[in-house]
């Protein structure tokens, strides 16, 4: 079954006709040539396809495009303000928060979404006091980012970048 949909990706409105089986990830990469979200596992386990969907971080490989007609999507490529990198992007550069870089766009979108969740006071699995303020220490950062795998193992510098991102 073919269905017309319109989504906004990184501020640009994009219309297309898609097969109902198409995921948001495949719609972006294969139909719109938006290559920032990466296909890693394609089963929601690695986080490399993470985007901000209506402001919240999700894995785009498990989202059917047809179900997200009208959605507003931000990829890592859409976070920068012109030539000015988003503070989280800049922190990954400054702290060497990657090696091969394949997981990085997903890490960065996830981090931006994660920082918003923490700002809204959302607790995590490692938060001692569920009703208290959130202190984003290293344990919190690691837990909240556990949905993003890095097979190069750049985690130590990713945490360092996130600490910096938290401060800014």
């Amino acid at each position: 079954m073919e269905v017309p949909i319109t989504i906004r990706v990184d501020g640009a409105e994009r219309s297309m006709t898609i097969d109902t089986r198409t995921t948001l990830l495949d719609a972006m990469r294969d139909r719109l040539s938006i290559m920032s979200p990466k296909k890693g596992c394609d089963h929601g386990q690695c986080g490399s396809c993470t985007v901000l969907l209506d402001g919240r971080r999700v894995v785009s490989c498990l989202a059917l495009a047809v179900a997200h007609d009208g959605a507003e999507i931000t990829t890592a490529a859409g976070l920068a303000d012109g030539a000015e990198l988003h503070p989280v992007q800049q922190a990954f550069v400054d702290r060497d928060g990657f090696q091969c870089g394949y997981c990085t766009p997903g890490q960065i979108c996830s981090a931006v979404g994660m920082l918003e969740e923490a700002k809204a006071g959302h607790p995590s699995h490692v938060t001692d006091d569920l009703t208290g303020p959130i202190d984003l220490d290293d344990a919190e950062l690691r837990e909240r980012m556990s949905g993003n795998l890095c097979r190069c193992g750049a985690y130590v510098n990713i945490v360092a970048a996130l600490r910096e991102g938290t401060a800014s």
């Binding site: 929601g44 986080g47 993470t50 919240r56 971080r57 999700v58 894995v59 498990l62 989202a63 996830s110 979404g113 994660m114 969740e117 607790p123 995590s124 699995h125 938060t127 569920l130 009703t131 909240r144 980012m145 556990s146 949905g147 993003n148």
Partner: peptide, 25 residues
């Protein structure tokens, strides 16, 4: 807020499942 205060076991169970991205969907 009500779940965190009155049913903490439910909040903790949810937070121990999946990842931040999956819990958002």
């Amino acid at each position: 807020p009500v779940v965190r205060e009155r049913y903490p076991m439910l909040s903790r169970a949810l937070l121990s499942g999946a990842s931040g991205q999956l819990r958002n969907a």
